[in-house]
Design a protein around this nucleic acid. Structure first.
Lengths: 350, 350
DNA sequence: TTTAGCACTCGCTTTCCATGAGTGCTAAAG
DNA sequence: CTTTAGCACTCATGGAAAGCGAGTGCTAAA
C-alpha cells in the first residue's frame, strides 16, 4: 500500500508548511509551492485520498488539511531530509559544551539548558550508571579538627563524593588512619547489604568511638551508592512552550509544564541499542504527552555510564532540525566525556 | 492624614476579598461582609474617599474597587494580621526540610521546591558566603591509579570540594604525599592571586611532573574559590503562575516565567538587617516585576554563610500567609544549618 | 451622618450577519 | 484514466448591535 511519489511529495509539502505556519494548509497554497505544475483541483483529489488513508486530517469540513500522527510518522521515516548541521552550528554546540571541568550533574543540567536554547523547545537530560551494582572502590578519612572529619569515597563508576562528618567524641588522628585502612580492606567492592553485615562483624574489634565514626561513614557510603543507581532528571526551558500557538491555551500549557516539573521520571527514554528515538503524539503512552512529540537521544559518559538528552515539543515540531541538533549534542557530550581528553569522564566533586 | 478606623476596616475587607476572589469588589459585598451595620450607600461614600486618597483604584467608572499598591502597602504595614502557623503546619515545614545530609546546593534547591509547593507561588532560593575572601584551608591529594589522583580541598567556609585530576605522566605516590605537604604549607589561607604568585615561585624547586600536578590543583582551587564568592539562584514552581487569573494572558505569563528562568540574578534580595522584606508592585525596580509582589526572607547557614528564600506572586498575594510560611521556612533552615545538631552547616560533597 | 431611591455607566455575553478561504462534486478536456 | 475548470456549499472568524447586570454617583429625606 505504498503511496505514489506525488502523494508523498504533497504530504511533505503539507507537513513542512504546517510546521512553519501552524495553520491548516489548503490546496491552493500547495499548488503554489509545488511550482504550478499541477492545479489546485488535482491537489484536492490527492488530498482527499491522503485524508482517507489517514495521513492527513481535516479540522472541519472545509478548511485546509493538517498532518495526522500517521502522517508525521511517514514523514519522519521516509520523507524528512536528514539535516546536516552547518559547521558554524557544530562549532556553537561544542562551544556551549566547552565548560570548565565540573561536577557531572552540573555539566549535564547545563547541557540541558543549552539544548533547550538551541532548539527552542523544552529539553530534559539525565545520566545513569550502566552497572547494576555500584560498589565503593576507595575510602579516605581526613581529620579536619578534633570533632569532625571528611569522608571521601570513590565509587566503582569513578565518581568521587565527600561529606563532612561530625563526631560526638574526640578521635585520635592515628586511629582515624587505621580506620581508613580497615575501610579499604573490608568495605570496598561489596554491596550495601554486605557492608552492613561486615559493620556488625567488626563491632567488637574497635573502640566505641571509632565504631561510631565507622558506622557514620558506612551509612553515608550506602546513601551514595544507593543514589548512584537511580538517575536524576533535569528539565529546562519549559517556558519555551508559551511561545507556541498550540499552547496559547493556558490550561494545556499548565498541564504540560506541571508534567515537566513534577513527573519528569515518566519522560521517554531512548531504546537500548538505537541512538535516537522519536515519539509522535499518541505514540507516547503517557497521557500528558498525547498531543506532543518527543525526540530523545543517548550518549556515553566514559565506559560505565550512559546519559539521555531529549526534547519535548508540539507534534508539529521541526523533526529534522531537532534531530540533527540533538545528535550533535549527544555526540559532543560523548566526545567530551571520552577518555582521551583532559576533561575526563567521571570527574566530579562531592 | 490618618484614616478613620472604619475606612481602614473597609480597606481591609476590600483587600482580603480581592485577594480571595481576584475580582473588583463592590459596595454591596463589603456591606455584607461587615455584618450589615452600615448600608451599601455609606460604603460607597467611604470608597469614594479611599479612591481619592489613592488606596483604591477603579478599573473603570462603575465597577467595584481594586486595591492600589499604596493600599496593599498600608495593609501590609498596619492592617494585616500576622498569621501564626498552626502546629501542624510548622510540623509539615520541618518535615519538608528534614532531609538527609546532602550537598548544600541540593538542600536549598529542594527547600525552594518545598516553599513553592507550600505557598502555591513560584519561589527562589540562594546561598552565599558572608566572607569577602574565601581561602583554601586544607588540601589532600589521593592517588587513585598511576595516571590520576583526586584533589580534595576544604575551603575557609567549610565546604569540601573534590575533583579527579588526570596526569600526563606517572607520578610516584610518595612524591604526591610531599606535594600535599607543600600545598598545605604554602597555598592555604591566601587568595587566588597570591596562590598563582607562589606557584611561580616553587616552579624551580620540584620536578616538572609534580609541577604539572601542582598547577592543575592550584587552578582547580582557584575555580572553586572563585565560585564560592558568587551565589547561584534556584527558582522553582514557575508553573504555579498559570493557575492565577492574572496570568491567563499567555504573554504576561511568558514574560515573567522567562524572567524567573533567565534573569534570576535580578530578583530582590533581603536587606542586611531585617529578616524579611516585602516589595509590592511598582516598588520593584525591575520592569518584569512591576505587576507582581515579592516576599523575601534570609536565613543563616552556620556562621559564615547566609541564604535567601523568596516568593513571587501577583500583587494580590496573600501576604499574611506567605510571610508566615516564609519565615517558618527561614527559621527551619537556620535551625537545620545550626551547629548544634548532627546534620551540620557546611557539609557537602564535591 | 446615614440611608433609600434612582438614573446612568460600562464591561461582558450573546446574537446575527457578512466575509472569505477552502472544499467536494460534476462535467468537460486531454 | 487523469487533469482541470466551474460552481455551490460549508464553516470558522471578526465585527456590529443589543440586552444584561453589577455597581456607581448623586440627591433628598431621615
Amino acid at each position: 500500500m505504498d503511496l505514489t511519489d506525488r502523494k508523498k511529495q504533497i504530504l511533505k509539502v503539507v507537513i513542512e508548511d504546517y510546521i512553519a505556519k501552524a495553520e491548516p494548509v489548503g490546496s491552493k497554497a500547495i499548488a503554489g509551492e509545488m511550482g504550478g505544475s499541477v492545479s489546485s483541483a488535482t491537489i484536492r483529489n490527492e488530498l482527499s485520498d491522503l485524508t482517507e488513508l489517514g495521513y492527513l486530517e481535516q479540522p472541519h469540513t472545509s478548511s485546509g488539511r493538517v498532518p495526522s500522527p500517521k502522517g508525521y510518522r511517514l514523514y519522519v521515516n521516509e520523507l524528512m531530509e536528514r539535516q546536516r548541521l552547518s559547521v558554524a552550528e557544530t562549532e556553537k554546540i561544542n562551544q556551549a559544551l566547552h565548560m570548565k571541568m565540573e561536577e557531572l550533574d552540573r555539566v549535564i543540567s547545563q547541557a540541558g539548558r543549552a539544548v533547550s536554547n538551541f532548539v527552542s523547545y523544552p529539553a530534559y537530560v539525565a545520566a545513569a550508571s550502566r552497572r547494576k551494582h555500584v560498589t565503593a572502590r576507595h575510602f579516605d578519612l581526613l581529620p579536619v579538627d578534633d570533632r569532625s572529619c571528611i569522608a571521601v569515597m570513590m565509587t566503582g563508576d569513578e565518581r568521587v563524593k565527600s561529606q563532612l562528618l561530625r563526631l560526638q567524641l574526640k578521635v585520635d588522628p592515628e586511629q582515624v588512619q587505621s580506620l581508613t585502612k580497615l575501610l579499604n580492606s573490608r568495605f570496598t567492592g561489596v554491596d550495601t547489604e554486605e557492608m552492613n553485615k561486615r559493620l556488625m562483624a567488626v563491632s567488637e574489634e574497635i573502640t566505641p568511638q571509632l565504631f561510631l565514626l565507622l558506622s557514620q561513614t558506612v551509612s553515608y557510603a550506602a546513601d551514595v551508592l544507593e543514589e548512584a543507581g537511580q538517575k536524576e532528571i533535569y528539565t529546562a526551558g519549559a517556558n519555551q512552550l508559551l511561545r507556541l500557538p498550540e499552547f496559547q491555551d493556558v490550561g494545556k500549557a499548565h498541564e504540560l509544564m506541571s508534567f515537566l516539573a513534577d513527573d519528569k521520571e515518566n519522560l521517554p527514554v531512548p531504546d537500548e541499542n538505537s541512538p535516537m528515538k522519536i515519539l509522535i503524539g499518541p505514540e507516547n503512552v503517557n497521557q500528558a504527552l498525547q498531543d506532543t512529540s518527543v525526540v530523545v537521544a543517548s550518549y556515553d559518559i566514559g565506559d560505565d555510564m550512559r546519559g539521555l538528552i531529549g526534547v519535548v515539543g508540539p507534534t508539529r515540531m521541526d523533526y529534522g532540525a531537532v534531530a540533527a541538533r540533538l545528535s550533535g549534542f549527544a555526540d559532543g557530550l560523548t566526545r567530551m566525556f571520552g577518555t582521551k581528553n583532559l576533561p575526563p569522564k567521571g570527574e566530579q566533586e562531592t
